[in-house]
Simulated assay, not measured.
Amino acid sequence: MQASMPELRDIHLPEPVSFWPPAPGWWLLALLAFALLTFAVLAIRRWRRRRQAQRQAKALLAQIDWQGDQWPRELNSLLKRAAMAYFPLNDVASLHSGQWREFLCQGLADKQREAFLEDYARLQTQLYQPQTDPLSPEPYRRWAELWLKQALPPKGGDYV
């Protein structure tokens, strides 16, 4: 039997399995992980820009001179600038009068909405036709704080 098997060789083990190149499943997993990481980084950056825009708007709101007679203009200007930073420019820049009031009260509950529309109409009247009876700034400051808190800016940005 030994004589008939001279051409047989000893058992050879296969080469060790290399880690490179990885299997297609690992490539897909790496691609998915990269996509999730990119999405997370972009979401965090967007969230930070939103928070920054809201902080800036609140800081500007605190700087308004509520004792003077120019606060209605300053408040209206601040809300317009904040809206243009929060929302797409084409949706906000051309709004005025009733459209502007309606835009500002989006997202408010029905009772809040009615009160806001009435109050803001008085403010807009005060902007262009100063009254002998000045408005109390407190409700308007509260409305502005509420709007700045509830408005969710989709694009973030700095105030100009």
Rank of each mutant, 00 (worst) to 15 (best):
residue 59 A to I: 02
residue 142 R to F: 06
residue 133 D to C: 08
residue 56 Q to G: 10
residue 11 I to K: 14
residue 59 A to Y: 08
residue 150 Q to F: 03
residue 56 Q to F: 09
residue 108 L to Q: 02
residue 77 S to L: 06
residue 121 A to P: 00
residue 29 L to F: 11
residue 56 Q to V: 10
residue 125 T to I: 09
residue 82 A to N: 03
residue 102 E to H: 07
residue 135 L to T: 09
residue 128 Y to K: 12
residue 18 S to G: 09
residue 90 N to P: 01
residue 51 R to D: 12
residue 103 F to P: 00
residue 75 L to Q: 01
residue 50 R to H: 14
residue 17 V to H: 04
residue 125 T to D: 15
residue 76 N to K: 00
residue 112 Q to N: 05
residue 86 Y to K: 07
residue 94 S to R: 09
residue 135 L to D: 15
residue 44 I to E: 13
residue 38 T to I: 07
residue 41 V to I: 12
residue 66 W to V: 12
residue 23 A to D: 10
residue 83 A to I: 03
residue 16 P to S: 03
residue 119 D to P: 11
residue 122 R to D: 13
residue 9 R to D: 06
residue 19 F to C: 12
residue 9 R to I: 03
residue 57 A to D: 03
residue 107 G to N: 01
residue 150 Q to N: 05
residue 155 K to I: 10
residue 157 G to R: 01
residue 86 Y to S: 09
residue 110 D to E: 13
residue 136 S to L: 10
residue 149 K to G: 05
residue 91 D to A: 11
residue 6 P to F: 04
residue 83 A to Q: 03
residue 148 L to V: 06
residue 6 P to M: 07
residue 76 N to L: 00
residue 121 A to H: 11
residue 64 I to F: 05
residue 39 F to M: 06
residue 111 K to W: 06
residue 114 E to G: 05
residue 156 G to C: 01
residue 158 D to T: 07
residue 147 W to G: 14
residue 144 A to E: 02
residue 11 I to V: 15
residue 150 Q to P: 00
residue 131 Q to P: 00
residue 72 P to N: 04
residue 25 G to D: 06
residue 7 E to C: 02
residue 65 D to E: 14
residue 23 A to W: 06
residue 101 R to W: 00
residue 131 Q to L: 10
residue 143 W to D: 09
residue 42 L to I: 08
residue 102 E to I: 04
residue 155 K to Q: 15
residue 104 L to Y: 00
residue 29 L to E: 11
residue 14 P to H: 00
residue 131 Q to T: 08
residue 108 L to T: 03
residue 132 T to P: 02
residue 105 C to Y: 00
residue 27 W to T: 07
residue 153 P to G: 12
residue 151 A to R: 12
residue 62 A to P: 03
residue 88 P to I: 09
residue 50 R to Q: 15
residue 53 A to F: 05
residue 48 R to W: 11
residue 72 P to S: 02
residue 81 R to W: 02
residue 3 A to N: 15
residue 21 P to F: 01
residue 9 R to A: 06
residue 41 V to S: 10
residue 127 L to A: 11
residue 126 Q to V: 09
residue 14 P to D: 01
residue 40 A to S: 11
residue 32 L to K: 04
residue 53 A to Y: 01
residue 115 A to Y: 05
residue 124 Q to S: 04
residue 39 F to H: 03
residue 44 I to N: 13
residue 10 D to V: 08
residue 45 R to G: 09
residue 110 D to W: 13
residue 75 L to G: 03
residue 16 P to Y: 00
residue 124 Q to H: 05
residue 53 A to P: 01
residue 80 K to D: 06
residue 76 N to H: 06
